[in-house]
């Protein structure tokens, strides 16, 4: 069928059904904004976890040239480093795995994590301490490892990687679940709205559709304008949701949070842009499925 013909049918349908269309757009926008917010929170958690968080439990930072810790007397020596490594080897099987990270590697990962933050400019590669990253057989064995290494020559500090961020992540996780729950409920409302809108539209146009059928229009071309109506509303709603997320990144995260909380790695534009297509996928998918299902029932042969 010609596109201009379909476009006219769809445009006419949306106008005729104006209030329902607006309700549909708004509910799609709200549910997808919350869905997007939940995804954004997940990205934020991933961002803050950095490279190591899910892989290890303990970080042993070694002395650098400018370390201020009391048992650091200049940069760690090769002997000291080997000594630490040997100690960790001796702690097996409590120490399940260990990785060595040089300052250069640490700097590269830092840059990746804080991408887009002004803090990068203030940190030199030499300021990033080299470290051993240790995976434990059981996180509660942290004390054992800490006792063996704290205060050893060349060791600047031993950190329980999880203690630092656990609470914050718990809060974010709670918010994320909450947002997803509301998004799910709104999506359900959206499905009902799509079904109702399509049903009303199919009823209002039963004359057209019966004539279309009698002159031999295919089932898909009879249903297409209705599905496209729902999809158009979904795309507009998803667009609003995408706009809201972009605004949050631009005016809340970049303009307010990042300058004041520079020690936190914030979600980047790349993270935000990775989320946006999913809003459209979910929005359009919902519209197509809900309208297709309704039409099967109300536009039968």
């Amino acid at each position: 069928m010609r596109t201009s013909f379909i476009a006219r049918e769809v445009g006419g349908g949306l106008r005729r059904n104006f209030t329902m269309t607006v309700a549909l757009i708004v509910s799609v926008a709200v549910s997808l904004t919350l869905f997007g917010a939940a995804l954004l929170m997940r990205s934020q958690v991933d961002r803050m976890k950095g490279y190591w968080y899910d892989k290890i439990q303990v970080s042993i930072f070694l002395c650098g040239e400018n370390s201020l810790a009391y048992n650091c007397t200049g940069a760690v020596t090769d002997t000291q480093r080997n000594e630490v490594r040997a100690t960790l080897e001796g702690l097996k099987p409590t120490v399940q795995e260990m990785y060595y990270e040089s300052s250069n590697e640490a700097y590269a990962r830092f840059k990746e994590q804080f991408k887009g933050s002004p803090i990068i400019a203030n940190v030199a590669p030499s300021a990033m301490p080299e470290s051993f990253r240790v995976k434990l057989d059981d996180p509660s064995h942290y004390d054992e490892v800490a006792a063996a290494l704290e205060g050893k020559p060349g060791v600047e500090s031993v950190q329980d990687q999880r203690k630092l961020l656990e609470r914050f992540f718990q809060i974010l996780h709670g918010l994320q679940t909450f947002a997803l729950a509301i998004a799910g409920a709104m999506l359900f409302v959206t499905v009902l709205l799509v079904m109702n809108t399509v049903r009303v539209a199919a009823f209002a146009r039963r004359r057209e559709t019966s004539i279309m059928r009698s002159v031999g229009a295919s089932n898909s071309s009879i249903r297409l304008p209705f599905i496209l109506e729902a999809v158009t509303a979904a795309v507009l709603g998803a667009g609003l949701a995408a706009g809201t997320l972009v605004a949050v990144k631009q005016y809340v995260i970049d303009a307010r949070l990042q300058p004041n909380l520079t020690f936190i790695a914030w979600v980047t534009w790349q993270d935000v842009l990775a989320i946006l297509p999913w809003l459209f996928v979910v929005g359009i998918g919902t519209a197509v499925l809900a309208s297709g299902f309704t039409l099967r029932r109300y536009l039968k042969g």
Partner: peptide, 19 residues
């Protein structure tokens, strides 16, 4: 069912109520 539209294209139909 998929081929019904093709059948109807070979038929013209007129009704009492014009439609």
């Amino acid at each position: 069912n998929r081929k019904v539209p093709a059948l109807r294209r070979t038929l013209g139909i007129v009704f009492q109520d014009f439609r």
